[in-house]
Measured scan of single mutants.
Amino acid sequence: ETFPLDVLVNTAAEDLPRGVDPSRKENFLSDEDFKAVFGMTRSAFANLPLWKQQNLKKEKGLF
């Protein structure tokens, strides 16, 4: 299941849709939104070091 970017960005855990893991908001973006937000594919993002993934998520309001 995916959700629009505005539902996930800068949203407190208690305000997220049911079933969304607040530590993994990026997994609930569509592939198109994911690429638009991070400028890379999911596989490229997954290959980044964890610290870099976290920094990007913070920068984009998805942490």
Rank of each mutant, 00 (worst) to 15 (best):
E1D: 11
E1S: 12
E1Y: 14
E1V: 15
E1L: 15
T2M: 07
T2I: 11
T2Q: 07
T2C: 09
T2E: 04
F3E: 03
F3K: 03
F3M: 03
F3L: 11
P4N: 09
P4C: 06
P4D: 07
P4L: 05
P4Y: 03
L5Q: 04
L5M: 07
L5T: 04
L5V: 09
L5I: 12
D6F: 10
D6N: 12
D6R: 08
D6M: 10
V7I: 11
V7G: 05
V7K: 11
V7W: 14
V7Y: 15
L8A: 03
L8G: 03
L8I: 05
L8F: 03
L8P: 01
L8Q: 01
L8S: 01
V9Q: 15
V9K: 11
V9E: 05
V9D: 03
V9Y: 06
N10E: 07
N10Y: 10
N10L: 06
N10P: 04
N10K: 07
N10A: 08
N10Q: 09
N10W: 08
T11G: 15
T11Y: 06
T11P: 05
T11R: 05
T11M: 10
A12E: 08
A12M: 08
A12D: 09
A13K: 10
A13T: 14
A13V: 14
A13Y: 08
A13R: 09
E14V: 09
E14A: 11
E14N: 08
E14Y: 02
E14C: 13
D15P: 02
D15Y: 06
D15G: 06
D15K: 05
D15C: 14
L16K: 03
L16V: 07
L16N: 05
L16C: 09
P17I: 03
P17V: 02
P17C: 10
P17R: 01
P17E: 05
P17L: 04
R18C: 15
R18N: 15
G19L: 06
G19E: 14
G19V: 14
G19R: 05
G19K: 07
V20R: 03
V20H: 06
V20C: 09
V20T: 06
D21R: 02
D21K: 03
P22D: 06
P22W: 03
P22T: 06
P22Q: 06
S23Y: 15
S23R: 07
S23Q: 13
S23T: 14
R24M: 10
R24G: 06
R24Y: 11
K25M: 14
K25H: 02
K25R: 13
K25L: 15
E26T: 02
E26Y: 03
E26L: 01
E26V: 02
N27H: 12
N27G: 07
N27A: 14
F28H: 14
F28I: 03
F28W: 15
F28G: 04
F28Y: 15
F28D: 04
L29R: 01
L29M: 07
L29Y: 02
L29T: 01
L29P: 02
L29V: 03
S30P: 02
S30V: 03
S30C: 06
S30F: 01
S30A: 07
S30Q: 04
S30N: 11
S30K: 06
D31C: 06
D31F: 05
D31T: 09
D31Q: 08
D31S: 06
E32S: 11
E32K: 11
E32D: 12
E32F: 12
D33Y: 04
D33A: 05
D33M: 04
D33T: 07
D33N: 06
D33K: 03
D33H: 04
F34K: 00
F34S: 00
F34A: 00
F34L: 02
F34Y: 02
K35M: 15
K35E: 14
K35F: 14
K35N: 14
K35L: 14
A36W: 13
A36D: 13
A36Y: 13
A36N: 12
A36S: 12
V37T: 11
V37G: 01
V37Y: 04
V37L: 11
V37Q: 04
V37S: 04
V37W: 02
V37D: 01
V37A: 10
F38K: 00
F38Y: 02
F38V: 01
F38H: 00
G39S: 11
G39R: 10
G39P: 00
G39N: 15
G39W: 04
G39E: 12
G39I: 02
M40L: 07
M40C: 08
M40F: 04
M40S: 01
T41V: 09
T41P: 11
T41H: 09
T41D: 14
T41W: 05
T41S: 10
R42P: 07
R42E: 02
R42W: 04
R42L: 07
R42Q: 08
S43Y: 12
S43R: 11
S43C: 12
A44T: 12
A44P: 00
A44C: 12
F45G: 00
F45K: 00
F45Y: 07
F45D: 00
F45Q: 00
A46T: 11
A46H: 12
N47T: 13
N47F: 10
N47K: 13
L48T: 01
L48R: 00
L48A: 01
L48P: 00
L48Y: 05
L48D: 00
P49T: 07
P49M: 02
P49N: 05
P49A: 08
L50Q: 09
L50F: 12
L50H: 09
W51N: 09
W51C: 14
W51R: 11
W51I: 12
W51A: 12
W51F: 10
K52S: 13
K52L: 12
K52D: 11
K52H: 13
Q53K: 08
Q53V: 01
Q53M: 04
Q53C: 01
Q54L: 11
Q54A: 12
Q54S: 11
Q54C: 10
Q54P: 00
Q54D: 15
Q54R: 12
N55Y: 12
N55F: 10
L56F: 06
L56C: 05
L56S: 01
L56P: 00
L56A: 06
K57V: 06
K57T: 03
K57H: 01
K57E: 05
K57G: 01
K57M: 05
K57I: 05
K58P: 01
K58M: 12
E59K: 10
E59I: 13
E59F: 06
E59A: 12
E59Q: 12
E59T: 08
K60L: 10
K60S: 08
K60T: 10
K60H: 14
K60F: 09
K60Y: 09
G61T: 01
G61L: 06
G61I: 02
G61S: 04
L62T: 01
L62Q: 03
L62D: 03
L62E: 02
F63Q: 14
F63E: 12
F63A: 15
F63K: 05
F63P: 03
F63Y: 14
